[in-house]
C-alpha cells in the first residue's frame, strides 16, 4: 500500500501511515477548516488496510491539541482500529500526552473507555 505522510501544520496534524515499515502515527494539532475532508483519505486508507492487516500494529497518538470536531473523526480512526483488533487481536494504541496536560491524559482514557483496544498511556 502507498504510504501517507503529511507534515503537521498549525491547524492540521502530522500523519504517517506506512504499512511497509509498520509506522502509524498521528501527532500535533488538529483543527482543520474542513475536518471531514482532511480525515477522509486517512479513514479510507485504514479501511483498505484493515482488509489485510495481519502483522502487529502499534498506533501512536501524540496530540498537542484537537478540537471537538476532530474528536469525532479521531473516534472513527479508533473504530477502524477496533475492527482490525477484533479480527486479529494485534493492535496496541500508544497514547502520548505532555506530562502536565491532564486534559490530554483524560482524553486518552476516554477513548480507551469507548473502544475495545489495548491502550498504553505514556507521559512525555
Amino acid at each position: 500500500m502507498k504510504k501517507i505522510q503529511l507534515t503537521g501544520t498549525d491547524d492540521t496534524p502530522g500523519i504517517i501511515l506506512d504499512a511497509e515499515n509498520g509506522i502509524f502515527e498521528i501527532s500535533g494539532r488538529s483543527m482543520p477548516e474542513d475536518v471531514e475532508m482532511f480525515f477522509d483519505p486517512i479513514l479510507q486508507w485504514l479501511e483498505n488496510y484493515a482488509e489485510n492487516a495481519n502483522e502487529k500494529i502499534e498506533f501512536i497518538f501524540k496530540m498537542k491539541y484537537f478540537n471537538t470536531a476532530s474528536s469525532k473523526l479521531m473516534l472513527d480512526v479508533f473504530m477502524i482500529l477496533e475492527t482490525i483488533h477484533e479480527n486479529n487481536n494485534n493492535v496496541l494504541i500508544k497514547w502520548y500526552y505532555p506530562e502536565n496536560d491532564e486534559d490530554m491524559e483524560e482524553a486518552g482514557e476516554e477513548y480507551s473507555d469507548i473502544v475495545e483496544i489495548p491502550f498504553e498511556h505514556i507521559s512525555y
Binding site: 480525515f39 474528536s71 469525532k72 473523526l73 473516534l75 472513527d76 473504530m79 476516554e110 469507548i114
Partner: peptide, 8 residues
C-alpha cells in the same frame, strides 16, 4: 455525544 457524532 462523541459516539453519536462520529461519521461512521
Amino acid at each position: 455525544q462523541i459516539k453519536n457524532g462520529s461519521k461512521l
